[in-house]
Design a protein around this nucleic acid. Structure first.
Length: 273
DNA sequence: TAGGCCATCTGGTCCT
DNA sequence: AGGACCAGATGGCCTA
């Protein structure tokens, strides 16, 4: 479920109940643990301000400001508290659902899974998913193009060696690489590369300039990088054994699709705290 | 120990 | 009015 809990065992995977209970206990008993000690006895609305180093006198005035006269009349402290708990609970649930969706996304990513492999971070998951989609789109386009070349126009040449499911016969084994295909440029040796990050993106040069270098799986995304075959682990050695290579992965994204850059993902560059 | 990643709380905004 | 969504702040855990 919440895979984060596998890494951080102290965090309950479903804190709905426990955390609510703990929160209530903290408030009623006066919890003075890791959380700011004043949080326990301050109205929920004050905690944010308190955490930012505002005095108790200012807290009071701020609390009065924050609540309209109507609110102050209608809502008792307990009601405000329970409302806060309710809102917090909803927010937790929302974030948990988001994490579940993120885990679902990780599951379908062609990335090395397993206990010895560190889980992809959220940002890495999103970036890889994006490039995975681009790669699949490219594959589809290439497949369409090849099919049209073979069965459509041209000299009607019979392509006896065409096996749609086989990448090798499709392009790699071709005597002359298709124009524009990476094989025509530098694909002969088939270097281990990131199947999800287009070459233009996966290069250190293009990433480091955008502040995305930390996203590259090279950067310690694996618990045991040396254990895998290549910098990306076993799952990334050219799609692993037995998995045909969809050649389009070697291609750069279509020109109309903006590459990973500070422009396409502006917030990523400012992610660092 | 610093930095990365994350969960949680919180207040604000928008939508139904 | 209530809920969803978002972003900032904070603190905990983990790793290099």
């Amino acid at each position: 479920m919440d895979s984060d809990t596998s890494r951080v065992s102290s965090r309950p995977s479903s804190p709905e109940g426990d955390d609510l209970f703990l929160s209530a206990v903290k408030k009623s008993v006066g919890f003075s643990g890791a959380v700011s000690s004043t949080q326990s006895d301050s109205p929920p609305e004050l905690r944010g301000a308190d955490m930012r180093g505002i005095s108790s006198a200012e807290e009071d005035s701020m609390a009065l400001k924050m609540l309209s006269k109507k609110d102050r009349k209608l809502l008792s402290e307990n009601e405000l508290q329970s409302m806060r708990l309710k809102i917090n609970s909803r927010e937790r649930k929302r974030m948990h659902d988001l994490n579940i969706a993120m885990d679902g996304l990780r599951e379908v990513m062609p990335y090395a899974h397993g206990p010895s492999v560190r889980k992809l971070s959220k940002i890495a998951t999103l970036l890889l998913a994006r490039n995975y989609i681009l790669m699949l789109s490219n594959s589809l386009e290439e497949m369409k193009r090849l099919v049209s070349e073979i069965y459509g126009g041209g000299s009607g040449a019979h392509h006896a060696g065409f096996h749609p499911s086989s990448c090798g016969t499709l392009t790699h084994a071709a005597a002359a690489p298709l124009p524009g295909h990476p094989a025509a440029v530098s694909h002969s040796s088939h270097p281990v590369h990131h199947p999800l990050l287009p070459p233009a993106v996966s290069t250190a040069a293009s990433l480091s300039g955008t502040g995305l270098s930390a996203v590259r799986p090279h950067h310690g995304l694996l618990k045991a990088p040396s254990a895998g075959a290549g910098p990306l682990g076993a799952g990334f050695q050219h799609w692993g054994a037995g998995i045909p290579c969809p050649c389009s992965m070697c291609q750069v994204p279509p020109s109309h699709v903006p590459g990973m850059s500070a422009v396409s993902m502006p917030r990523l560059t400012s992610d660092s705290k």
